[in-house]
Design a protein around this nucleic acid. Structure first.
Lengths: 336, 336
DNA sequence: AAGGTCTCCGTGAACGCTCACGTGAGCGGT
DNA sequence: ACCGCTCACGTGAGCGTTCACGGAGACCTT
């Protein structure tokens, strides 16, 4: 259905129509000097009338300074990503780069596809990638490439590491310190299927072990990464283990869904059951009671990644990139 | 601090290093036939070793089919925009377009800047623009250009119109039908400063007039477009007019902030004061009680805009673009 | 009148790639 | 020995710009 493209109007055609050379047209279009004001206007008028627009390809070919950054995220609709995006956009703008955005939904096929695209379309990439082979593929090509959230995995790839271990530990110890013993975990079903080790669940098991608190397997519920997913998981959890006193969620979105459902089912928060999220999304302030969570500076995360990409682009070796770690901070609101 | 860029490795250099012609290198890189498997491997290895990556400019110059869409939004952090973005991204991906995103914060200077950038960097633009001159500038250039949310203003520019009048009327009449008479409005301070006529406020005044309900000027409070802004505006409103029974907000974000603050100040919702938002954001479900609102299909909005851009790109005149209107639907949750 | 400056404009060349060809080597069939 | 075919590869041209020049004329200056 898309009709055939209209043919491109070139600078030469404008030149011919105006009776000048292409260089003069170029001068007019780019607002340069060495051109008679009247001629400039004539050219501009003709250009507009003919629908002329310079080819960014031809331009980019000759002036090598236009940089495009590829930003790969999992889900625009998850509030986590817009915040990272804000950081990336800002840092990129400061450098005069433009940013093209790709959404993968963490689907395996899509991730691989996007990595391929990246090589063709951008000068550097900054990405959330879940699947091993997509990461490997991205790292293998010779495109400056930075991983947002590189878990313990993929040490060879430059990127920002979020210290999930430290964060989860702080959170769990806070819960335990408050006297909780029956602490359930609502895990991301994706992270569960992914090949990457899940730092949050591992830490959960480890800390519980350290404190000598027995963990019932039923306490770990996989949840779809969404409000509804969290709600459904909570309902499953409750039907089997009504006695849990605290819930540690994979992230805020799941935590919020869970807390909402728990309240709908008549539980008091935090008296009957406390909730602890992860990410520090601002929407955590909207629910009642406001969600206690491990806050990640997502904006900074995006900025750092761009800085690293800039270093890579400037010719730094992958080993020269300084390690960057983001430390989640316990943000006590009221749900736990 | 950014070191000097490393020079670009060209196809000819790879060719020379491998002892073949550039065409053969091209065949290897692009996975084409008419090449010996062993040669291909040799070339690929050399390319990787030398850090070769084809120039997207040179490529784009010869094959004319790569399309880049520019998406201009006001604020990534406002949940309204990610939803639109999702629609745009999806529609663009279906067409094999890539999308570059610009954030303006609705700042006048930034809007003008971004419009300039657009002309250089993309093949078509889809934008939220608040300021008149930015819109005019965008429309004047000969870049296929579509306005997301074209208010009654700018009839010459193609774009999607959101029927704020119809929506606001439905919402207001619902409130009035519920018996409310002292209905305040929390308006966007930006839209107030902007030159564009504010359909929501106008409708508010008109409908109130039609129903013979006198409006106190103090009932209209400007609010910064954020949760906190809504909260602050609500507090101002309450300190002057404690007797309002309903609040009609410019959008959900402001409504949520207002409702949160009202509850914090001891008001019961909706008994003491009802709240009506605009946009239909999913975060409206998180607050207590869930926010009643005029729901806009934001995803569809993005999709339609891309469709129109595609039409324009295919050579359709601006007048041939079918009018698209999005109708806000009253979504009754519990806050009103 | 000769020289010098300024203003305005045009001409190759180059950017890095792909496309449409052209070519030579190898091989089987007659 | 010839034709014809396939396979692997190379060559010229062209995509649409900008950059570094070069040059013609107008206008001063001495």
């Amino acid at each position: 259905m898309p009709t055939n493209r209209r043919p491109r109007v070139t600078i030469d055609q404008v030149a011919q129509a105006t009776g000048v050379s292409r260089q003069t047209v170029s001068r007019a279009i780019n607002n340069k000097s060495e051109i008679d004001p009247e001629t400039r206007q004539r050219v501009l008028d003709a250009a507009r009338a003919m629908g002329y627009r310079p080819s960014r390809f031809a331009r980019g070919l000759v002036r090598q300074d236009l940089i495009t950054l590829g930003l790969v995220i999992a889900d625009v609709l998850n509030p986590f990503f817009p915040e990272v995006t804000a950081g990336v956009l800002e840092a990129a703008e400061r450098r005069g780069w433009q940013v093209v955005v790709y959404n993968t939904g963490s689907e395996h096929r899509k991730e691989l596809e996007v990595v391929d695209l990246l090589f063709d379309q951008v000068d550097a990439g900054v990405a959330f990638l879940l699947h091993h082979d997509a990461i490997a593929k991205a790292a293998a090509g010779n495109l400056p490439f930075v991983l947002l959230d590189k878990g313990g995995r993929a040490p060879a790839v430059p990127g920002v590491r979020i210290d999930f271990e430290g964060g989860a530990r702080r959170g769990l110890e806070y819960l335990i310190g408050k006297g909780h013993r029956r602490i359930a975990m609502l895990d991301d079903e994706m992270a569960l299927s992914g090949e990457a080790p899940n730092a949050r669940r591992e830490l959960y098991l480890r800390v519980m072990g350290e404190r000598g608190i027995p963990v019932d397997v039923g306490w770990i519920q996989p949840a779809h990464n969404s409000i509804d997913g969290g709600a459904a998981a909570m309902e499953r959890l409750l039907s089997a283990h009504r006695d849990v006193t605290a819930v540690f969620a994979y992230n805020d979105v799941i935590a919020i869904g869970a807390q909402l459902r728990a309240r709908a089912l008549g539980l008091r928060v935090p008296e009957d059951c406390a909730f602890l999220g992860f990410d520090g999304l601002s929407i955590g302030e909207l629910v009642e009671p406001p969600l206690t969570t491990l806050h990640i500076d997502k904006r900074r995360l995006g900025e750092i990644a761009v800085e690293q990409a800039a270093l890579l682009l400037a010719g730094a070796g992958e080993t020269e990139i300084p390690e960057a770690v983001i430390e989640p901070q316990l943000l006590i609101r009221a749900s736990a």
